[in-house]
Computed example of a mutant assay.
Amino acid sequence: MDNKKTITIIILGLVAMVGILLFLFLPSKSHLANIDFYVYDTNDNFHYEVNERLELLVNDTAAIKGKRLIWEMGNGDTLMRNTDVSYTYRKAGKYLITLKIDGKHSVNKYIKVISGLEHEAIDSIPRINGVSEGYQGEELVFSAEGYGMDTWLWEFGESGTVDAYEQQVVYSYDIPGEYTISLQTNTTKYPVKHRITILPRFEKAEELVTVDSLVLVQNDIKKHLQAIADAKVSQKSVYYEHTNYIRNKYFCIDADQVVVVINDEKYNDFNGYCQGLHFLESNRKKRVSIDDVKIDDLNCVKSIHVTQSYIEK
């Protein structure tokens, strides 16, 4: 009988010890699972470039306090520090950055580092910014976006010849129909194309409805972009909820083909732009305020012009 009591006591003691160990270690492991990091480009142009100082920011500084962090930069270099982590790549390429925490947990992230020539090439690709649907006799505004251009030859497909020679032009169609706009610049070998549908002349009441609908869509996109900017890095479900909403409701092409123009001077695809908005929450110095949003087409958004500013924390 005494042996049974002794065995029972030993078993209960072991169960208690296991419970204590689970209590001590499982919360820590669960907490580590929420840790993520962001690679922040210091020149704010949404590109990682050769010889640019990149800052590595952890989303939860409290969770890593007192822990041993090792950063593997994907090129053989290793950094061992918890705060004020920065690094500069000397060669272009795709790198896998790995953050190891106490040798028990790791977080991986791929980044692409581009050369100065690649950056120039990306920003110099001309794009036509303008609506994809208009009305007979309506004055439509089109502009060429991109760097390095100094000549512009516009053909709007109605006259059969060159119609304008400026970077930004105003054109009105006399006959309804489907047209292809062509833009030839000094930076392109072949013209850039843009399709547009011209509808019969509209009444004033219809014009008001169209304008109101456009404003509603722009304000809706603005609201969801601000929600992405305000979400914490750990709130991944919030990030995906708002990006998927915009993509599914307003895009007719892949999100990585939708061009986002920031403050009329910087360019990004939609996915890259939203990632930048989301991870800026990790930056203790500033937050993003979405001040205004303009789109090119009510029914099929292909480009978004965002006016944004920074709010110092």
Rank of each mutant, 00 (worst) to 15 (best):
E133P: 01
N75S: 06
D230P: 02
I35Y: 04
N82E: 13
D297R: 03
R284S: 09
R195M: 09
A164K: 14
I175W: 09
D123H: 11
S237G: 00
Q136E: 15
Y89I: 12
K285I: 10
Q308G: 04
N108T: 14
E118W: 11
N129G: 05
K222C: 10
L57Q: 13
R90F: 08
S28A: 15
A16T: 06
V238M: 12
R287A: 15
N244V: 09
D41Y: 07
D41L: 06
L22Q: 02
R53Q: 13
K294C: 04
G13W: 00
L225M: 14
A92T: 04
I10D: 01
Y87R: 03
H224A: 02
L57Y: 05
N59F: 09
F202W: 02
K112M: 10
Y165T: 15
R68S: 13
P27L: 14
N34G: 09
E281A: 12
A255I: 01
N75K: 09
E203V: 13
I7E: 12
G137Y: 11
G160F: 09
N271A: 11
F23C: 07
L12P: 01
Q218F: 12
I111Y: 12
D256T: 14
Q184W: 04
Y48L: 07
Q257N: 07
N75L: 04
A229R: 13
T161D: 11
A229V: 09
I97N: 13
Y245F: 15
G272Q: 08
T243M: 12
T180G: 00
N268R: 14
Y190T: 15
I128G: 03
S213F: 06
V39Y: 05
D254F: 09
I304C: 08
T197Q: 10
M149I: 05
T42D: 12
G177H: 07
V85E: 12
A63W: 03
L225V: 06
A62E: 07
F270D: 02
I253N: 11
E178A: 14
L153V: 03
L54P: 08
N248Q: 14
K5M: 09
F202H: 03
E145K: 04
I228A: 04
S106C: 05
R247E: 14
M149F: 00
K91Y: 07
I101S: 03
T8V: 02
K223M: 05
H305A: 11
T151S: 10
G276E: 11
F270G: 01
S159K: 11
G19V: 02
K91P: 01
V211P: 00
K94S: 10
K285D: 10
L208K: 12
M80T: 10
I128L: 05
K4M: 04
G66E: 05
S237H: 04
D41H: 08
V238H: 08
C300V: 00
L14Y: 02
Q257V: 00
V162C: 03
V141W: 04
D84H: 12
K29L: 15
V162Q: 09
